[in-house]
Design a protein around this nucleic acid. Structure first.
Length: 466
RNA sequence: UCCCCAGUAGCUCAGUUGGUUAGAGCGGUGGACUGUUAAUCCAUGUGUCGUUGGUUCGAAUCCAACCUGGGGAGCCA
């Protein structure tokens, strides 16, 4: 007996007439008094389920087959046949139905075969992978993740696993989650009455990382082309459809590179990943196009076939000031752009992803390379229509005197960054990198509206189930 | 964290100028029919009306606080 996945059978990889066993979960069962039941089985290998045609002559037809409901798990053995019905090229003429597990109360099985709201599905994060929408999201997510690794691998980048536990706030990127093994009911105190972290596990304060960037920079300054791809954590009290407390970030870092190099790298990477999804997950994308976002395929096609628009921050400010549109917040050189401004630029002015470059230094992080004008830094954001900032990057300040000056201006504790400063003291090189919020990419590519629906188990303020 | 909105059956929602027995569709179940596929047709049930407190003769309905969710904002990726 040989086993086959649903995708292999539906794709015709199993010859007609051959006997195989398919294992999975029941999506629907329809009975015909002509003496057969149609059972649709999904196993996650592709969007479509396979139809098994089950004759009532089977021994367990009455006792088990007729008890199969949505969610039951089965192994169905049968002969692959060209389907007599519409809707699928191949089906399984069942000769044996083995039941792993029935659904104990079909009436209250949470994933009933009907449309559910995304909010409802979120409450069943352990069962929602069985739904069309979550299954499709996770296949696309996987496709994107694999494409990220492939993209960098093909270009000679090395994947560096940067640490999750850290001592320093990398860039003031956000509030950090504290990690501690101290007894919270009985905290050791210093003579001054502060918590004595020298008694803690690491002998000092420790946190979950907010970014792998500073760590990965050290490897860029030795291995030249590197990236990190892993989870990051922000303890911000952000309650939006675009933020998570735990999310994955792709952060390439490239030595001997400037801002334009990584802007191009970012554009190439996005196009590569989107092309991968269009090629490998056409079935899932057809579903998103039909049920989730009627514009998603057009949008993705446009991205892969057009050059991104580059624009300096200063130019964007001028455009916003002269566009004649009324904004809730005034646009002024030197302030950060508001969501409404970013949305206008990406959605109305350009209608495609836009690369904004050379921001005022005062609204950006300390490590960003200072431009010769004395006012701006070599930073860039890529803004995507419908979702806003999807990528943020910069050239890094490689000149020690400039870096120190900036850190002093911003009041950063120099001693925490000694190793970071060493990179500038010993054989410094120009380098640049960016960060891509992976879930934002998945959101954008699928057309989903809430980022909590594109990660298996979303973590957000007041939300840590499962 | 701020502003706005919502929370009633397994799910999606209607209802309520405070008043006996709380409504529909879908799902489930039973039946009919059918190479069906969001099947169709007939029958059928279901409720701490988010939680706690208050006002009242009486609260699902009014008020307050809280919890949870949604939309927007801020922070960012």
């Amino acid at each position: 007996m040989s086993f086959a996945t649903v995708v292999d059978v539906l794709a015709g990889k199993v010859a007609v007439g051959e006997q195989v066993t398919v294992r999975g979960w029941v999506r629907t069962r329809r009975d015909s008094k002509a003496g057969i039941s149609f059972i649709n089985i999904h196993d996650g290998s592709c969007f479509d389920p396979i139809q098994a045609v089950v004759p009532n002559e089977l021994d367990n037809y009455e006792s088990e087959v007729l008890k199969l409901t949505t969610g039951a798990s089965v192994a169905i053995t049968g002969t692959v046949a060209e389907s007599a019905g519409k809707g699928q090229a191949y089906e399984l003429q069942a000769t044996k139905v083995e039941v792993y597990g029935l659904v104990e109360d079909p009436d209250t099985y949470p994933m009933s075969p009907k449309p559910h709201s995304m909010e409802y599905l979120r409450e069943y994060a352990h069962l929602r992978p069985r739904t069309n929408v979550t299954g499709a999201v996770m296949r696309v997510r996987n496709c994107l993740a694999q494409a990220v690794h492939r993209f960098f691998h093909e270009r000679g980048y090395m994947w560096v696993s940067t640490p999750i536990l850290t001592a320093s706030d990398a860039e003031g990127a956000g509030e950090m989650f504290r990690v501690s093994t101290l007894d919270m009911m009985n905290l050791p105190l210093t003579e001054q009455g502060a918590v004595d972290y020298s008694k803690d596990f690491f002998g000092k304060e420790s946190f979950l990382t907010v970014s792998g960037q500073l760590n990965v920079e050290t490897f860029a300054c030795a291995l030249s082309k590197v990236y990190t791809f892993g989870p990051t954590f922000r303890a911000e009290n952000s309650n939006t459809s675009r933020h998570l407390a735990e999310f994955w970030m792709v952060e390439p870092e490239l030595a001997f590179a400037d801002l334009n190099d990584i802007a191009d790298l970012a554009e190439d990477m996005l196009k590569y990943c989107i092309n991968a999804v269009l090629e490998e997950r056409a079935d899932d994308m057809a579903f998103f196009q039909q049920r989730i976002d009627k514009t998603v395929l057009d949008r993705l096609q446009q991205i892969v076939s057009n050059k991104f628009v580059h624009m300096d921050y200063s130019e964007a400010v001028e455009i916003l000031q002269n566009c004649g549109k009324k904004f809730d917040y005034a646009v002024e050189w030197g302030t950060d752009l508001q969501s409404e401004h970013e949305r206008y630029l990406a959605e109305e002015h350009v209608g495609a992803p836009i690369v904004l470059k050379n921001y005022p230094k005062d609204i950006k992080a300390f490590y960003m390379r200072q431009n010769d004008d004395g006012k701006t830094v070599a930073a860039m954001d890529i803004l995507a229509p419908g979702i806003g900032e999807i990528i943020g990057g910069s050239a890094r300040e490689e000149r020690l005197d400039r870096l120190d000056a900036r850190m002093q201006e911003m009041g950063l504790p120099m001693e925490h960054y000694s190793w970071y400063r060493d990179l500038r003291r010993y054989g410094t090189v120009p380098h640049a990198g960016f960060g891509l919020g992976f879930e934002r990419l998945v959101t954008y590519v699928t057309g989903m509206t809430n980022i909590r629906d594109v990660i298996p188990f979303p973590r957000a303020p007041k939300n840590l189930e499962f």
